[in-house]
């Protein structure tokens, strides 16, 4: 059995979720090959070669792969994938964009966002916004799978795999990168943060998120948001935690002014400790919170900041 892991990266470095995906691959069992497709991506490939359990890194370095356009990368992955029993990618926006296209090219089903490996062909995944967990078995010859990073620990960086360059270039010629607008932040990345503090509609406006930022700075935390806060335009949508946003499972999740709709809970209810600060003591968030504080956030947040 051979497992191909499609790395997610920004050419200069790997995205953290790739290391979690390698751990999922280890649980399936078999030789693990990581594919780094990109442009000037030698640094990302070197990082991939250090991941524990990886035996080989394939590097496809070409301008056609620079922005991981699904049309081009899926052709490459499908071409390579024929020689593997499993093709895995992290369930990041790139993984979710590319892998279903790979599966259809290989004429097999795709299994999205697994949270556990039961055996080489049986996996667990959440459905209905995480309100049910399905155990599914695939009889396809090649299992094409995206991995939810919060379901697996990150593989350690103590390996030394060989690195091999690929000559193959696949360019569908049907799509082009125009530009990107990336949010800049000095704080830890949401999906990798140990502590997250999130604000909801109760924050009232975008300026009030400064109250959360101050607490986040004291805790070294990332700042998230509910869909209500994003839709209201308080903060950009890449901060959204939930079924349709990012899925997180930090050590500590502090939900401030968030009611706790199903959509939001789907993204954070696997956090180790959940704290809710809300002035409505009937808010559903209190049903999942380990520690609940019924208080006005505008007085509680500055007080919390002062006491940390």
């Amino acid at each position: 059995m051979g497992i191909l892991v499609v790395a997610d990266h920004n050419n200069a470095s790997l995205l953290g979720a790739t290391a979690n995906t390698v751990t999922a691959a280890q649980k399936i069992g078999g030789e693990i090959t990581v594919l780094v497709a990109g442009s000037n991506c030698a640094d990302a490939a070197a990082e991939a070669a250090k991941l524990n359990g990886v035996s080989k890194v394939l590097v496809a370095d070409n301008a056609a792969y620079e922005h991981l356009l699904a049309e081009n990368v899926s052709l490459l992955v499908a071409e390579l994938g024929k020689d593997f029993t499993h093709v895995l990618a992290p369930a990041t926006s790139n993984g979710k964009n590319i892998l279903p296209r790979v599966a259809a090219l290989l004429d097999v089903a795709q299994i999205s966002e697994i949270i556990a490996v039961e055996s080489a062909d049986t996996f667990k995944r959440p459905i209905y916004a995480g309100n049910a967990i399905a155990t599914i078995q695939s009889e396809d010859a090649i299992k094409v799978i995206t991995v939810r990073a919060t379901g697996f620990d990150a593989a350690a960086a103590d390996g030394s795999a060989s690195i091999e360059a690929l000559a193959s270039v696949q360019d569908a010629g049907k799509s082009a990168f125009v530009g990107a607008e990336l949010a800049k932040s000095d704080r830890p990345e949401l999906t990798a943060a140990k502590v997250i503090i999130s604000g909801g509609r109760g924050m009232g406006n975008g300026e009030n998120f400064e109250l959360l930022n101050k607490v986040a700075d004291k805790l070294g935390a990332a700042v998230g948001a509910s869909r209500a806060a994003v839709d209201a335009g308080f903060v950009p949508n890449d901060m959204q935690v939930g079924q349709t946003g990012k899925i997180v499972a930090p050590e500590l999740y502090i939900a401030v002014g968030i009611s706790g709709a199903i959509q939001h809970l789907a993204g954070m209810k696997d956090s180790k400790v959940i704290v809710a600060i809300n002035k409505d003591e009937e808010a559903p968030i209190f049903q999942v919170a380990d520690y609940g504080l019924v208080a006005d956030l505008f007085s509680a947040l500055p007080e919390l900041e002062g006491k940390l």
Binding site: A132, K269, E281, F286
Partner: peptide, 29 residues
């Protein structure tokens, strides 16, 4: 070619406690 073997409810979180003040919250954490 994909069969659903089982559908289960996710593990329920045990009910937490309400704290009375920010001091108590920080102390508990």
């Amino acid at each position: 070619k994909v069969k659903t073997l089982k559908v289960e409810a996710p593990a329920a979180r045990s009910a937490g406690i309400k704290v009375g003040s920010v001091d108590e919250l920080v102390e508990k954490l």
